[in-house]
Design a protein around this nucleic acid. Structure first.
Lengths: 206, 206, 206, 206
DNA sequence: TATGAATGAGTCTTCATTCAT
DNA sequence: AATGAATGAAGACTCATTCAT
């Protein structure tokens, strides 16, 4: 077979894999992770269940792909959010980007919470787990960078604390919002996030 | 059948339902949500699977009962936590109680996050949702009370904001912890919660 | 529920389990062990596959039951075969019984060969394996007894050797017969077995 | 297409088929009969699964080829084993060779037992069976020859009996060994085979 | 000749739920 | 009130085989 043909075949494969991936993501968005079974995905693709195995070696691999994709989008969003020259604006930008990403893509939040439910990663391979955690680390690193720009001499310990305070704050807002609690309490999630940022900024540069 | 007999019958029924519930709770605590299948619960009760349907219309109803119970325990814990005379200590006590409850009963956290994902097969959830939210409101009210004691003249809006800031902070810590993120970040959940409290206290009474 | 009713229920259960067992044995005889899948058995029983799990906890348990039954019949046959007063006749009787059992129930031969195919017991639990091997040991013990009656002072080592020589001889005949080789070679299995017995008897009491 | 070209094509085809066969044999030796799926073989050949169908009409045909090959190797081994001048040594050599071949290639034993259980999906087996039995006949012929050398005037009937006695003896040892029974009985397969040979030799030349 | 996607039937097992008893 | 048998659908995954390319 000519190089050309091999390439085309590969391309066709990739296109189809991407299509499956897209459908899988939709299924997962519509049905939640538990509903996004191999069968369900296959059905949505008009495939027999076995057919998916030409593209993914296991269900977990599909999940991993979805999560990978999610983390990459998060990363991009955070990076873009932290571009501002001014350090304060940069930090605010990062945190907002983080927050908005999950606010606007609530299923990504579900995903990132669910996958680790139970005691640890459920079906994911050790390596995969590492890879995904690394990806998340990179995204969070952007927040660290913004913090350090704000106070270049800050000790690592302190920086970690601010970062975790912010992260937990915004995560809490997201979760309360996602589970419907915040509306019950008459709260405004956007404002709450700003509030968390303000508190940290005040603590950092009084 | 005489009224009396009907009553007794009802009483007997309730006792048994309570017994089933107690066992179900244990099973759920030991095995987590996924492991607490109807069959598992029935087995633990020394009942045949079908028998449970005399007391609960569906598996979801059992879950609902467990969640109800969870919120009640949370409520009690929060109330107890807020008993201190001193307003600051009282606030700190409430928040800590909230936090510790979920920290020490992580399955309750799972439960409270889970129930809102995937609505459950029946229409059940609408009314249930109302009831459960009301229960949660009561628990949170305790936090409100502590806040108001600290600054009696505070406007409702402001109070809500502080309350939500605290709540989101501690929820975020719990979620990060439960999903294993916090350990990755080298964080200490207890200290983080204290930090959130400190920030709010400082904002309230500088 | 009254004792009586419990008993009857148990009885009904046992009857059905026995029925399933009988069907499973037939399926296995007709289709071989590989063909005797849970589904196939269920189909033959006019059951949904899941229904069998009310009677057997796993496919392996069914297999085990079939094998157990086979070994028990073998044991009974061997015991009956060794009843003769005269030691020589007794030995001959045992060996013949052994041989005839498998000759007349060739599927039991398949079973006993298959189960241990591959490196070891395939899906059987350790305990089960032990149990079944013990059963076989008992059956073989009858042969040992007959040998010892023939030469009461024989050393254990020697006895073992005679026993194994006989056993391997008759097993070989069975296998050659079962795989169609013996007919090709114009051989008579019955006579061959007698020959093996004769050889051993001559060696024992010249 | 010219005759020449047709021939070359055929040759090419045969070469490739042989290559596939070689790989298949390796796979089968490494993984056993169950593990040697079409896909596994294709994978090992660096072929796509479908490609094999250009060379073999079905999986069963591959198995048949492997069995054919197995019998040929057995034949060669037996022939080589019977080369000794001295008739007794020659007989002993043949039997040992037979035994050792299967002892050292236990998968060949599995194969030769398996093929006759479950006829294979196609009608293939009828003719195949003929062919394979012929092959086996040749291998066994070597044993006959050695026997006849030992007692040139022996009647055919008697010779057959000795041959079958030996054959069944060694087959029985192999089967008992392969299924783990012999170790349970504390037996030594090599010694047992020698014993069978001894018994026959003694019967032949007292 | 070879590919590799796709099928369809198969593997065992678990589950919530129903229903005759 | 309680049983437990039974269903039917679902879970992930594998396989031999076919067929358009």
């Amino acid at each position: 077979m000519s190089r050309e043909r091999v390439k085309r075949k590969k391309a066709r494969h990739d296109v189809k894999r991407a299509a499956i991936f897209a459908v899988a993501k939709q299924v997962f968005v519509k049905e939640g992770l538990e509903g996004a079974s191999l069968r369900a995905i296959a059905r949505a693709c008009d495939y027999a269940p076995g057919a998916l195995y030409a593209y993914y070696a296991s269900k977990e691999e599909i999940y991993a792909d979805i999560l990978r994709d999610s983390l990459e989008r998060l990363h991009r969003a955070a990076a873009k959010g932290g571009l501002a020259r001014d350090a304060r604006r940069s930090l605010r930008g990062v945190v907002r980007a983080f927050y908005r990403f999950y606010r606007d893509n609530p299923h990504d939040l579900d995903l990132s919470l669910y996958i680790y439910q139970g005691l640890g990663p459920r079906g994911l391979t050790r390596e995969l787990d590492e890879e995904l955690n690394a990806k998340l680390g990179v995204a969070i690193g952007i927040m660290t960078a913004a913090l350090m720009r704000l106070r270049p001499r800050m000790r690592a310990r302190e920086c970690e604390m601010h970062q975790q305070t912010l992260l937990s704050g915004l995560m809490g807002v997201l979760v309360l919002q996602r589970t419907g609690r915040l509306s019950r309490l008459n709260g405004n999630p956007d404002r709450l996030v700003e509030r968390h940022i303000d508190l940290t900024l005040k603590a950092l540069a009084p």
